[in-house]
């Protein structure tokens, strides 16, 4: 059985792009908000890695990160963002993120980071 991965991004086209990259190798859950991410994690305890967008309209990705880390500490989190900003990356790492990918990304970047976090 393939590993389960959660993708959380408010834009459908981004979710579809990540699905194109990871879809052949993993079991994916696509959601468009932090609220849905938490709900999905609650119902699928075996999700191992989550990819989170930082800029989302209602609750931003860093807040979602904090909430996931407090409720589901076993889930590895990779932040995906348009900001190439050292402070945000450091803040994400401090809050417990295990990876930080800047858009536009290469498919290998996503594949490798996910693979690394699953091993």
């Amino acid at each position: 059985m393939s590993n389960k991965i959660l993708i959380c991004d408010d834009e459908e086209n981004i979710r579809e792009s990540i699905k194109l990259i990871l879809g052949d190798f993993y079991d994916l859950f696509l959601v468009n908000s932090g609220e849905q991410a938490l709900y999905t994690l609650e119902n699928n305890k075996d999700i191992k890695v989550a990819l989170l967008d930082i800029k989302m309209p209602k609750v931003n990705g860093l807040d979602v990160l904090t909430q996931i880390k407090s409720k589901f500490p076993q889930v590895k989190i990779i932040m995906v963002t348009g900001y190439r900003c050292v402070e945000t990356a450091a803040e994400a790492a401090r809050l417990g993120a295990s990876g930080y990918i800047v858009k536009p990304f290469k498919s290998e970047e996503i594949l490798e980071t996910v693979k690394k976090n699953l091993s």
């Binding site: 086209n13 579809e16 792009s17 194109l20 990259i21 900001y83 858009k103 990304f105 498919s107």
Partner: peptide
């Protein structure tokens, strides 16, 4: 500038992934 980054990088991501595959 930071707004620009987000607004442009998202469409670029989609285009880049498409061209790669």
């Amino acid at each position: 500038a930071s707004g620009m980054a987000h607004e442009i990088k998202n469409p670029l991501t989609v285009i880049k992934t498409f061209s790669e595959y």
